[in-house]
Nucleic acid binder design. Structure first.
Lengths: 361, 361
DNA sequence: CTGAAAGCGCTTACAG
DNA sequence: CTGAAAGCGCTTACAG
């Protein structure tokens, strides 16, 4: 095992001090042209490679960012990660990733690991939108934080979100416009007590819910669903609101079957994200239902298959890549020392109309 | 910005030397029970968090692994990454990721970055199966390497691969068994000169190709395709072999259309991976073809939609998660000091028979 | 069991 | 422009 060469080795060979060798190799401070060439030559001969650890220990900067998201296997997070990775790459930053599996304990451990590794900043999709003690004080401690996909109550840091309420309202309004009156919604709706749904709907209807409420995306999308009904003067039937409770396609599949088994089944379905969409379509596939003849469907997130699953799935496409890029840009600015007030980047989801929506039979 | 607390701060508060504080906090060396409690109490009071950088600088170990794969947005790599991440997490290791976009220059840069960050090991899916100078000598320099998905000529390090030839042969044999005689194949087939295909087929037929040839997966799958024909005593029609040349669904889509426009079109199609499969299905969807009535299809990689895209897509499922886990396990063992000869883990792909294969019309 | 000292590989003032 | 010295936050022998 050949020993790694250090600045001292290079300096010795070049006949200069380590300070001088460091200056040319590290690109800081001055060096005469002749000296710089000698050093570079020596470094090249020895196959010198800087040790980022030593540098970071002194500068207090690692040029590394940590990300904690639910599950990198999920297309939503995978794209976000790609967007983040692209921007960080341009800045020469490294990317440390972790999965929380939407579990607070794991998330806390992940943040702890990233902190010990001295990341300059982190991008997190928090699984707890209220407490999140482990995320507070990070910025004050010199570790920049940007939230993605979800906000946290009272945590004023940069964040990038999708305009979920508007996108859901638009999606459901489109179904109503096509003539649907009984629209089923399949959503995760995690993080609140079971009985909350009815109360939540009442609050939306009375307008006592405010944008300041730190809601999970699926609750915001339910909000949009209720608003679309309100706008159209339609009553909301609680039986059509199905709660999966977890981020798993199979839970959505089960709820969809329950919905379709109703005495008065819905004529259209709204799935609130990619995971739910997959489960809903699985259920429709199980039943051999023909879209949009037997049922209309509007999804959320534009997954690969939605473009070619016949007749083409209409969906609200979140700009996943752009979300990751935006988060990374915000973070890079903070790490570069920007001290502007915290920013909330809210990106629109685009309704892509394909073939899965038609008037009810 | 509150200053980070160091071992010196803890030692001072606990009234012991930094050496002693370090011993209890770092979990190395002995300490009297009373001392350890004092130190722990002081550390807790100060909110002490170890600086992994300083420790790594001394120990020469970062407990961090780097991964370089083509594109984390691709479901194949995303799953592999998840498998790797799970195993590393159990060992308390961090995971640094990079994308090569199947581009050598980017891969070289990524490896360089990981090296500077002093990773203990790396898992790479090399985009060059011949040269790969940047990967040679890594192990000798103390950085453990394990290859995933692809081998490199003459690079004897641990690796985990899929048994591509067998899986492809099995897939195509199944189509032949169903009665197909004209089977189209849509594959990337990158990394070799354009004219090579005919020569490659001849080499397969003459049996002069050996397992030692470091082939890209798609070439190995073409190998299996040819072997299945040989075994059935069928001639291979070069017109049915379509080369996408890049890892992009649209290239496969174009090639599929070309295939179906042939005067004597194939009655069955074999797509050699998830990316090609998506492109092929897009083309079939473009044409409104009905599977398996109009055409039979056998894919590679088990993507989410293959389970519910009617009538269910028959495919050779690579154990992606297990591949990542296996790679991580091999790496962990090396990092723990195992000095066993290099290992080649070859995992089988399972043919999942769903509804897309039937006898020709 | 504990402490004083040296050192990991760099960068940072500070002289000259 | 260059060098000697100190130091980042830890761990590692080595005494005692």
């Amino acid at each position: 095992m050949k020993p790694r060469r250090t600045i001292a080795d290079v300096a010795r060979l070049a006949g200069v001090s380590t300070a001088t060798a460091g200056r040319v190799l590290g690109g800081y401070g001055y060096a005469a042209e002749a000296t710089r060439e000698q050093v570079l030559k020596a470094a090249h001969e020895l196959g010198y490679r800087p040790n980022a650890l030593a540098r970071s220990l002194i500068t207090g900067k690692t040029r590394t960012v940590g990300v904690v998201t639910g599950d990198i296997q999920n297309a939503f997070y995978a794209s976000i990660l790609r967007g983040i990775s692209d921007v960080l790459g341009q800045h020469g930053f490294g990317l440390l990733i972790t999965n929380s599996d939407e579990n607070l304990e794991q998330e806390v451990r992940a943040v702890e690991l990233l902190l010990e590794k001295q990341v300059d900043g982190m991008i997190v999709s928090p699984c707890d939108t209220r407490g999140a003690q482990h995320l507070r004080g990070l910025a004050a401690a010199g570790v920049q934080l940007v939230l993605i996909d979800r906000a946290v109550a009272g945590l004023e840091v940069d964040r990038v979100l999708t305009d979920n309420v508007a996108a859901a309202e638009h999606s459901v309004a489109q179904l109503i416009a096509a003539g649907h009156r009984r629209i089923g919604i399949v959503a995760e709706l995690v993080g609140e007590p079971r009985g909350q749904v009815a109360d939540f709907i009442r609050r939306v209807q009375r307008g006592t819910l405010t944008a300041a409420d730190p809601l999970y995306p699926s609750w915001q999308r339910l909000w949009g669903y209720v608003r679309a009904h309100q706008a159209a003067g339609l009553a909301v039937d609680p039986a059509l609101i199905r709660r999966a409770g977890v981020y798993a396609p199979d839970a959505a599949r089960v709820q969809t079957h329950l919905l379709l088994d109703l005495a008065a089944p819905p004529t259209a379905l709204f799935a609130t994200d990619g995971t739910m969409s997959e489960g809903v379509v699985r259920a429709l596939s199980d039943r051999g239902l023909d879209l949009p003849r037997d049922l209309s469907l509007s999804c959320f997130d534009d997954l690969d298959w939605m473009g070619f699953y016949r007749p083409g799935i209409t969906t609200a496409a979140q700009p996943r890549l752009a979300m990751g890029e935006a988060a990374a840009h915000l973070l890079m600015e903070r790490i570069d020392g920007a001290t502007v007030p915290f920013r909330s980047v809210v990106l629109p989801a685009e309704l892509i109309r394909r073939g899965s929506v038609a008037p009810p039979a």
